[in-house]
């Protein structure tokens, strides 16, 4: 009781019904699934940080190469192996001195500053790192999108039609899974010329299987739901059934799977480049840069450090975001 007893007076004891229909009213404003998910994602600090980092790095990947006048492929042996130097950041180690503490810029009489230093051909690493990020992200996103399209269509058809169709399609997937994908990819790249297209194709050729399985599982589950039955008894056509009822409800899982495919693709591309099957110079991807830097790690550690930091941060961010999205979109968490 919030108020003292003596305030309860006789005149309060009169019939006082609420307006009819009042108890049927819903509080608040309509909340869509997506706005609710967005609200929940914003509350997850890690995921939100991941999202911001990804946006930041994507923007840098696009504009970074244009922030200096150097192109990622211009070679100038006079400028080779310069340590990083940035005005104002000397205290962070960006002072242009090499392992022996000699200021290479002063020693060689170079006025220009290279923020991330240069490689052995004198190419500006700042430009190369962001160009590489651009290419890595491009490869990963295209590969993931192709996975998505093939996976959703394949998994969707398999689950929706079911029966024998499903049986055959699932056996095909099992065969694909049975072949070690590294072998498939290496063969693929050996046949095609190494390059962006062949890497993407090589990753997609086995990568879509995961997405197809997720989509199939989800749709199989949804197919038994009563609202699907209801739509069928209402005479809804198959295409409407798929686009209005099934796909929107599978979207959450698709996005989550996508968020985990992208970092895997980045990592895989880096791995391929690292073992020499990736992009060929002068094109750069993060894997290529890391491989280059790794060779001269002892003397020019900055060549390894910058691309390594970028790839790590991207990987972590995607994983954090993926985790956050899973929590935000998982229908089981909703009441």
């Amino acid at each position: 009781m919030s108020l003292p007893k003596q305030e309860i007076t006789k005149d309060l004891f009169v019939h006082a019904p609420l307006e009819s229909g009042k108890s049927e009213e819903l509080p608040g404003t309509p909340v869509t699934f997506w706005s609710e998910a967005w609200r929940r994602l914003k509350k997850n600090r890690g995921a939100f940080l991941g999202l911001i980092t990804i946006i930041l790095f994507s923007v840098m990947a696009l504009i970074g190469p244009f922030l200096t006048e150097n192109s990622y492929m211009d070679q100038d042996l006079a400028l080779s192996n310069l340590p990083p130097k940035a005005a104002g950041l000397e205290w962070l180690g960006f002072d242009g001195s090499d392992v022996n503490g000699i200021d290479q810029y002063a020693a060689r009489g170079i006025n220009e500053s290279f923020w991330f230093g240069t490689d052995e051909f004198g190419r500006d690493l700042w430009t190369r790192v962001w160009k590489a990020t651009q290419i890595s992200l491009f490869i990963a996103i295209i590969a993931a999108l192709l996975d998505l399209i093939i996976g959703v269509v394949y998994g969707g058809i398999s689950a929706f039609y079911g029966g024998r169709v499903d049986n055959v399609m699932q056996r095909i997937i099992e065969v694909l899974i049975g072949i070690p994908n590294l072998i498939v990819i290496i063969l693929f790249i050996l046949i095609l010329e190494p390059g962006i297209t062949s890497i993407i194709l090589a990753m997609v050729i086995t990568g879509w299987v995961g997405m197809a399985r997720v989509v199939r599982g989800q749709i199989l589950q949804l197919k038994g739901q009563e609202y699907i039955l209801a739509a069928r008894t209402l005479g809804t056509s198959n295409s409407k059934l798929i686009w209005r009822h099934l796909v929107p409800n599978v979207m959450g899982s698709i996005i989550i799977t996508l968020m985990f495919t992208i970092p895997t693709a980045i990592f895989f591309e880096a791995f391929l480049s690292f073992i020499g099957l990736g992009l060929q110079p002068p094109l750069a991807s993060l894997g290529v840069l890391i491989e280059d830097g790794y060779k001269s790690m002892r003397f020019f550690s900055y060549k390894l450090i910058f691309p390594a930091i970028v790839i790590s941060v991207i990987m972590i961010s995607f994983n954090l975001l993926g985790d956050g999205l899973r929590d935000a979109l998982d229908p089981k968490m909703r009441k």
């Binding site: 739901q225 009563e226 609202y227 039955l229 739509a231 008894t233 929107p248 409800n249 909703r334």
Partner: peptide
Amino acid sequence: KKKMQMIYQDPYSSLNPRMT
């Protein structure tokens, strides 16, 4: 299909959660 309709058991799973 227009003549026959059905009402289902589970009030929640019988309505598509992504539709108004």
